[in-house]
Design a protein around this nucleic acid. Structure first.
Lengths: 212, 212
DNA sequence: TTATATTTAAAACGTTCGTTTATCAAAGGA
DNA sequence: TCCTTTGATAAACGAACGTTTTAAATATAA
């Protein structure tokens, strides 16, 4: 049995609890007791709770961001026209790749991202933006090219609607999956959830103008 | 100048702060200082913070729920077929009606609802469900009738996606409106936001099956 | 080995929170 | 009138939190 150092034990326990309960509702005492390390070691290794949160996210961003950038770059460099469906597919592969990086990695990452957006903590918004700026710009460009009929402003709104859909779905994915099991006796995992949400948001983004 | 009693002053200050900052991030001390009343009066008049939160929501539910029920009942009793667009329009009028009940009432109510869903406080989920059970059932039936090709399970998922879109949009409406003003120099109010989100979710709910 | 740096451990600090208590003023009814 | 109820106010309570301090233990290098 390999020895896992304290820093990693903290990160593993923290990402699980942050995803399940949110950042504010997860105390350092809960994390350290779950990780079976001392309370003070969080501040020793990470400096503060804020920096721990950023470190938890950083582990995923380091894996995900380059993969996403490359995927979008291929699409944007291409000469053949592409659809909104292609754009979302660009996101899908790098996101699902996180499941090989860690068990339930995709779900955890999207939940962490969602919690960060929902809990109004400026430092996280800033942290994500600085690490995701290039990806977001590339993604925005791809969506514009896929929907030449939509104004930039319309795209702005619809991408935020999309973000809301995904973030909310992931943040409450556990509850949704449990309800689906109880009400419809179906087993849905995170991949099944994504497969169901993509048609929804694809159709929404490419929808016609304001209803008559 | 009419005298406003302490209870109402607390409710007014609380709903504003809850909508802006969320329930957990709004302390009773902030509420009572804003309302210019004594700290202990919250527990005197409402019993606890939980009950204050429920009282804040109740003021809106009492106005909104009957109106929504009636609106949906008319639709469900009708013999002529209706579309998804009609269903959402059923929600629109009672929701916008809240703007006459209170300044920015629609926005505040949807934000309160969204915060309640996002902040995983069981008592609020329970409170909303018991007060909204009939409306939700009627709404669900209307959506099924408007989309006979979709299975109940598919509708279940898409309605939760819709909920996520609306809730997230409303919870961050202030930020979104500010960004839109800065980036596109447009003034969007809550009504404009709804007009933009309805095509998105309408198209999403009625979308075709899983993408190939 | 000794000396130095790193990591763990326990305890306490200072703050904020929801809630409770104790006291007092005002109002209402018999 | 007196007495009870209702409401307002200041003060304090106990718990939980992030963080800091202090000291001991462990690893590293000379």
């Amino acid at each position: 049995m390999q020895k896992v150092d304290t820093k990693t034990k903290i990160l593993n326990a923290a990402e699980q609890l942050f995803a399940e309960r949110g950042y504010a509702d997860t105390s350092l005492r809960l994390i350290t007791s779950q990780a079976e390390v001392n309370l003070a070691s969080v501040n020793y290794h990470f400096g503060s709770k804020k920096e721990l949160i950023q470190a938890v996210l950083a582990r995923y961003l380091e894996v995900c961001a380059p993969s996403l950038e490359q995927s979008l770059a291929v699409l944007n460099k291409s000469d053949v026209p592409f659809t909104q469906h292609d754009v979302f597919n660009c996101l899908l592969a790098p996101l699902l790749e996180l499941n090989t990086f860690r068990h339930r990695g995709t779900s955890i990452f999207l939940q962490l991202l969602g919690r960060g957006y929902i809990e109004n903590q400026g430092h996280l918004r800033w942290f994500i933006t600085t690490h995701y700026g290039k990806v977001l710009t590339a993604f925005n460009k791809a969506v514009q090219d896929a929907n030449p009929d939509l104004s930039k402003e319309e795209i702005f709104w619809r991408l935020h609607f999309t973000l809301g859909t995904v973030v909310f779905t992931m943040a409450s994915s556990k509850a949704l999956i449990d309800i689906a099991k109880a009400d419809f006796d179906v087993d849905v995992d995170i991949e099944g959830l994504i497969k169901r949400v993509v048609p929804f948001i694809s159709s929404g983004v490419s929808a016609g103008g304001t209803l008559p």
